[in-house]
Amino acid sequence: MSIPLDQILIQTVNGLVNGMILALVASGLTLIFGIMDVVNFAHGDLVMLGGFTGAVTIAATGNFWLALLVAVLVIAVFGAALQATTLRPLLGRDPLTTILATFGISLVLQKYALWQWGPSARRIQEPLTGQFQLFYLQYPWYRVLTAVLSAAIIGGFWLFLRHGKYGIWIRATMQDRIMASAMGIPVPWVHTGVFAIGAGMAAASGVLFGPLGGVTQNMGLDFTLRAFIVVVVGGMGNLGGSIFAAILISLLEAYASLVVSPAQAVIVSFVVLILTLLFRPTGLFVPTPK
């Protein structure tokens, strides 16, 4: 069976777009792991909650950009509250307890969404309805816009980490928690702040993803798993590696879905994860040693 070149190119564009959204989810996850050794099992559910918050705001105001902003702020505050109440007491305990605690949170969030918004998918109206000709397809501009926006958010965040005062606090805490604390950095607040930023990024990707795949109460697990895979393949705590891994995995899944059904194409990313863990346990790019 031969696959026409134009289909491959279309899947390349699809893979890049999905990869950028995934990178946005994964950079929050990798950041949270890098700074406090917490694997946030509820990260995908924050994406889901962000999507729903966005959908509700759009229904009320009709403005997509306002909805994006509201969702990011609401979920960031919510994330900060979550971190302060459930994860702060666990700091310094076995990292396994944090995976258990965030697993419990994920359960609650998912069932809460089911209770509040029901089992059916919500579609967010895209702010941009134009399309352009891509071979035989009318390709929506909105998809391209999501990739650009995701890249812009990640880029902005990277600049903040590199040059902002609080960004430097974050990097200092990531490198050496005790030393940072000795230099007068309020480490517990940095943790809470980073969790809030990660949650906000997750919410942004939920809103951006809304017009593409719809928002459902059970989308969280899928996002969590794929973000985990990306973070492990890219190297835990390594932002650049995560972005690369997100695009790589999304491209592979997009190509695989040319051959098998999309449900089965997911297995490709699982195989990539297992191979990475076997041969490069620290990720494809060895992260800067702590």
Binding site: L225, V266, F270, L273, I274, L277, L278
Partner: peptide
């Protein structure tokens, strides 16, 4: 071959593989 969270995630991934 993996420890802690990596073990947990890998077992989760396997359960998804078998589920699919």
């Amino acid at each position: 071959r993996l420890r802690d969270i990596y073990f947990a995630i890998t077992t989760l991934v396997f359960s998804q593989i078998f589920y699919v």
